[in-house]
Amino acid sequence: MIEVKHLIKSFDDKVVLKDISTIFEPGITNLIIGRSGSGKTVLMKNLIGLMQPDSGEIRYNGRNIIAMKKNELKLLRREMGMLFQGSALFDSMTVLENVMFPLTMFTKDSYKERCKRAMFCLERVNLKGAENLYPAEISGGMMKRSGIARAIALNPKYLFCDEPNSGLDPKTALLIDDLVSDITKEYKMTTVINTHDMNSVMNIGEKIIFINQGRKAWEGTKDEIMNVNNKALNDFVFASDLFRKVKETENLAEQEG
């Protein structure tokens, strides 16, 4: 569980995060949504310790990341896995070497054991057969899956995904969403996903936090998001024709029924 309390972050005079408080629970997919520039990436970077907030607390199962010493933070980071927007695979390594990398750095396992674990992770994300390819030789969807395999190689307690399906076609995007959701449940991880894709929200949004102009403007689930009386959220949700039409159809059905 990750607990965020009264988080404030500013750059020079501009306050980007304004008193954010929430809880990210284990075993479910926690989504942070919002328009571009709303502050969701800054929130994510604060959560993983890449940025230091001005004030507030971020507690990982009770441990405050902000007050941690370098070594404690280093140990905590080994409990984290992260899927980056561009996958962030190491160009000079094959897919297998990428997945093996955290195992090479942090375990004393033999090469054979590391290879076995990496192959298991690759099989888990349906990437068997691509282990000897380099990142430049695989598709965007395969890169994301390799990124997930690398993120789960050390059995992390916390999984962070930054725009996991950006740049992917809708079908592949859904596959990635489902994969992240399945893995979250399977390993009981605390998963935090940063997205602005409404398809993802409706597919795996078990807990959703809507950030608007640096503030938490709404918190709920995918079942509630379509029927909320919040202008900023409605503008965001119904920005696409598809969701607007779904809503209109629903309203029509309600009136008729």
Binding site: I48, L73, A88, D91
Partner: peptide, 16 residues
Amino acid sequence: TMRVTEQIDALDIMGI
């Protein structure tokens, strides 16, 4: 290039 493609962030997140 590693910086702009977030590969350095990936190393930092791993605690390296």
